[in-house]
């Protein structure tokens, strides 16, 4: 890098970085701050950043007005099943596209890439009608079963790229030793692909946990609602109860932030692995 670049330009650089960093972080502080306030502190100008008294009872109030634990249970069921289905089926399919040779492979891979561009609205209505005919409305099946069938074009693509990077000799050697394809997949490829599988699992978690349109269409009973859907109904009922809305949003955010800090590496990797080639 250019060593003659002045001290000033690096001061400006760090100043700009810091300003943006603060701008991005302020809303998080604001959620926490609002969630601990009473109405008399919320509706004040200029806003109070640190409330004079922390109203932890706002969180208790959220639990009283909204069946948080029920929604949480539903969200966990849907998210976990989607993660299992997507990691399992996308790795299997990616193995077929990356390692195995079979007629029609390249043509079908082209179809797979094309489906990434397809707006889900085009398939949404007939799929809804189909699930209605199956009698699956107000169950988790419409959200979970498709996850086991393919696991999404993006995930298959990501895992295929990863499998292609594993030296062919490893699978070939196992084949010569009489290892079946399924055992090569399960005992050799899956352990090697752990980082990529972790990426897919975490991205799936992020998506399912926040998914809104799916639950909105398929789950109309309150007992089946997920956290995202429950929160959106809560918004409709609690106008101007900002402390409660921020407290409930924060409850939904905590797992996301925790996962992000623990598994940041895999999330970043997921983007760099797929997005760079163009």
């Amino acid at each position: 890098m250019n060593r003659r670049r002045g001290r000033w330009s690096s001061v400006v650089l760090y100043a700009v970085l810091t300003v943006f960093g603060l701008l991005f972080l302020i809303p998080f502080v604001w959620i926490l701050s609002t969630s601990l306030k009473g109405n008399e502190q919320i509706f004040t100008i200029p806003p109070e950043w640190i409330p004079s008294r922390f109203r932890w009872e706002n969180y208790a109030e959220v639990f009283r007005r909204m069946p948080v634990l029920l929604y949480l249970k539903n969200s966990v069921i849907v998210t976990v099943l989607q993660m299992i289905g997507i990691v399992g089926s996308s790795s299997l399919v990616a193995y077929a596209f990356a390692i195995l040779r079979w007629p029609g492979r390249n043509m079908l891979f082209g179809v797979l890439l094309a489906t990434m561009m397809l707006p889900m609205q085009v398939t949404m209505i007939p799929v809804f009608v189909l699930f209605k005919q199956f009698g699956w409305l107000d169950t988790f099946k419409p959200l979970v079963v498709p996850a086991f069938l393919g696991g999404g074009a993006f995930n298959i693509f990501l895992l295929r790229q990863f499998f292609l990077g594993i030296p062919r000799e490893i699978a070939d050697a196992a084949r010569i030793d009489g290892c079946s394809e399924f055992r090569i997949y399960w005992n050799i490829m899956i352990p090697l692909a752990k980082p990529a599988l972790a990426t897919v699992a975490i991205m799936t978690f992020m998506f399912s946990w926040n998914d809104f349109l799916g639950p909105l269409i398929y789950l109309s009973e309150k007992e089946k609602s997920t956290l995202a859907l429950g929160l959106s109904m809560f918004v409709g009922q609690q106008t101007n109860e900002w402390a409660l809305l921020m407290a409930s949003s924060l409850l939904m955010l905590i797992p996301m932030i925790a996962i992000f800090f623990f598994f940041q590496k895999y999330i970043i990797q997921g983007f760099t692995m797929t997005g760079i080639k163009g």
């Binding site: 089926s89 299997l92 399919v93 193995y95 077929a96 596209f97 195995l100 040779r101 079979w102 492979r105 079908l108 179809v111 797979l112 489906t115 397809l118 085009v122 398939t123 949404m124 209505i125 007939p126 799929v127 189909l130 498709p146 086991f148 069938l149 393919g150 696991g151 298959i156 394809e181 997949y185």
Partner: peptide
């Protein structure tokens, strides 16, 4: 290969092409 790819192929037919 068809066997391994079959989850996606079925998924594509039922939740992609047919709809």
């Amino acid at each position: 290969g068809f066997v391994f790819a079959s989850p996606w192929i079925i998924g594509f037919l039922v939740f992609g092409l047919y709809p």
